[in-house]
Simulated assay, not measured.
Amino acid sequence: MNWPKSIYVGDHIWFGQNAMIFKGSKIGSGSIIGANSVVSNKRIPSNTTYAGAPLRLIHENTFWTPHSVHGWNDEEIKKMSESDSDLFSYSPDENTLDFDEIESILNSSNQDDTVEYVLMFLFAGKNRFCLK
């Protein structure tokens, strides 16, 4: 049997064009999935870059911003790479949710309880979907 599995995607993820995400995949917040990549039943840690088919780790401790670096000079790139901000850096804390626990609760709940449970995530904090 080809049993269904959930897909979990954290906050602030960048999916490249034509990236395919299949069942059982868990993607932590702040990650980048390269163009034409295939993610199937994989656990992608937060703040990492993965790409390819087969999927492989490209870089760790990464984050993306909406800024376009195409017109930047070396000084601007260096300034951005040395940012003191942790706005897009995710690390586990007391608000971090466990994807396996979420799955178990969702599978054992009725529809009304499921909606209420999911709504709790909206205000769980920045690191709610961090994976390390």
Rank of each mutant, 00 (worst) to 15 (best):
K23E: 12
D11K: 14
S83M: 08
F63K: 06
V118K: 07
M80Q: 11
T48K: 04
L106Q: 07
N36A: 13
L119H: 08
K78N: 11
I44S: 01
E116R: 09
H12C: 13
E101V: 02
M80A: 14
F99V: 15
T96K: 01
K42I: 00
H70Q: 02
A19K: 00
A53G: 05
E75K: 15
R43H: 11
K26E: 08
I13P: 01
F15K: 01
D11E: 15
Q111P: 03
S104C: 08
V115K: 10
D113I: 05
F88Q: 04
G71S: 09
H70C: 00
K79Y: 09
N41E: 05
A51H: 08
S29W: 04
W14F: 12
F121S: 02
S40F: 06
K42L: 00
D74I: 13
E76P: 07
F22H: 10
K23P: 03
N127I: 08
G30T: 03
L106I: 15
D112W: 05
R43S: 14
L57M: 04
L87G: 04
K23R: 09
I105P: 00
S40M: 08
F123T: 15
S89C: 10
M1K: 06
C130N: 13
T49E: 06
S37A: 12
N95F: 14
T48F: 06
G16M: 05
F15I: 01
A51Y: 05
M120K: 15
M20G: 11
V115P: 03
S31M: 10
N107A: 12
S85D: 12
H67R: 12
S6T: 13
Q17H: 07
F88D: 04
N73H: 11
D86S: 13
Y90M: 09
S85F: 11
N36L: 09
E82A: 10
H12D: 15
R56T: 12
M80N: 11
W64K: 08
K126L: 07
K78F: 14
S31C: 14
T62L: 04
T49R: 06
S109A: 08
P45Y: 13
K126C: 07
G16Y: 05
M20Q: 09
D93I: 09
K23I: 06
L119E: 11
S46Q: 09
W72E: 07
T62I: 14
Y90H: 06
S46L: 09
A19Y: 00
P54G: 07
I105D: 05
T96C: 05
S89N: 11
N73T: 08
I58Q: 13
P92T: 08
E116D: 15
L87D: 11
N61I: 00
S109F: 12
A35N: 07
Y50F: 14
D86R: 15
S6F: 13
E94Q: 15
K23C: 08
T114I: 06
P92F: 09
N127P: 07
A51Q: 13
P4C: 06
Q111W: 06
L57S: 06
I102R: 03
F22A: 11
P66G: 15
A19L: 02
I27D: 00
